[in-house]
Design a protein around this nucleic acid. Structure first.
Length: 301
DNA sequence: AGAATTACCTGGCAGC
DNA sequence: TGCTGCCAGGTAATTC
């Protein structure tokens, strides 16, 4: 479930293999993911050298040497894996049958292959996406901010642009529940279901509460809004740190949650004890806008 | 116009 | 056991 911290982790995992490498060939194994690939996509990418990798919200950005940026969104089941050269030789020799079966099942959802040339040798970076909620596009670097995917995005939760004054402006007079308001990428870019639940728990704020109640009549942020901003920043930073820590052991490019999934306080903990010290409440699951919300009604008000 | 709902996908799993 | 049906969730399209 790639939200901002997972995409950041993917970017860091891919960067050593991709930055500076030449894409000898981009192989598309189908005509679309969630959306069709852009016109002549493979031809425009093949032969280019990768200048650098970046990230905006939940989008992975691949800057190419011709001034274009390849945009990749992992949807909810997208992942990248790196295959070194000469992988076929001796691979899976102990149980060739099972190995082949496992590989072929997985390969069914290998939709895009970057065939790379680099000083370290040939590599393949493979994009796999069973549910095909992901998508790719390409745009000139200078036009990135105006691209429909990026045009309306709010600030990054890790940057200076996100502050209580900014959110007060966005939330003022809003009856919309905090859960929905934080999930809206126009307000803050990069938060998903998991980290919204976690941030609200850290701030002791109910997901049902109207966003406008965190703003004074004069349009100033209440103290609770300052706490919410701090909670968002901390939960994202902690998650990135946890994803990054697993990079020490192996290159984690699969968009999974790293070690942070063991640190959930409310997400997927329905019926379990609230972890707020002295609270004694129980984590509940409700549905908001068709999605699960986990929270503690005892300490989140 | 803005907010709420549904569509898009498939694997995994609970329940029978 | 094999089937059904539901659930996961980010974004776009559609409806309200």
């Amino acid at each position: 479930m790639p939200e901002l911290p997972e995409v950041e982790t993917v970017k860091r995992g891919l960067a050593p293999a991709m930055e500076g490498a030449r894409i000898a060939r981009l192989e598309l194994r189908r005509g679309d993911l969630r959306f069709p690939f852009p016109d002549a996509f493979a031809d425009r990418v093949s032969g280019r050298t990768i200048v650098s990798l970046g990230r905006r919200a939940k989008y992975l950005l691949v800057d190419l040497d011709d001034g274009n940026t390849l945009i990749s969104h992992l949807g909810m089941s997208g992942s990248f894996r790196i295959e070194e050269g000469r992988i076929e030789e001796g691979a899976g020799a102990a149980t060739p049958g099972e190995f082949h079966h496992a590989r072929s099942k997985d390969e069914k959802h290998d939709h895009v292959v970057f065939h790379l040339e680099s000083p370290a040798g040939p590599r393949r970076v493979v994009y796999n996406d069973p549910r095909r909620f992901g998508f790719m596009d390409m745009v000139g670097r200078a036009d990135l901010a105006a691209h429909p995917f990026f045009r309306d995005l709010g600030p990054e939760p890790t940057g200076n642009e996100l502050g209580a004054a900014y959110l007060a402006e966005r939330f003022r007079d809003k009856a919309q529940p905090l859960k929905s308001a934080l999930l809206d990428q126009k307000n803050i870019a990069g938060l998903g279901n998991i980290y919204v639940c976690e941030a609200l728990w850290r701030a002791h704020l109910s997901p049902i509460r109207a966003a406008g109640t965190l703003v004074t009549a004069g349009g100033r942020p209440k103290e609770q809004l300052n706490l919410l901003v701090a909670s968002i920043r901390h939960v994202i930073a902690d998650a990135i740190a946890a994803g990054g820590s697993s990079l020490r052991d192996h290159i984690q490019t699969d968009g999974s949650l790293g070690y942070f999934q063991h640190s959930f306080s409310v997400y997927d903990r329905e019926g379990q004890a609230c972890r707020t010290p002295g609270c004694g409440g129980t984590v509940a699951r409700i549905v908001q806008a068709g999605r699960s919300t986990f929270y503690c009604a005892t300490c989140q008000k």
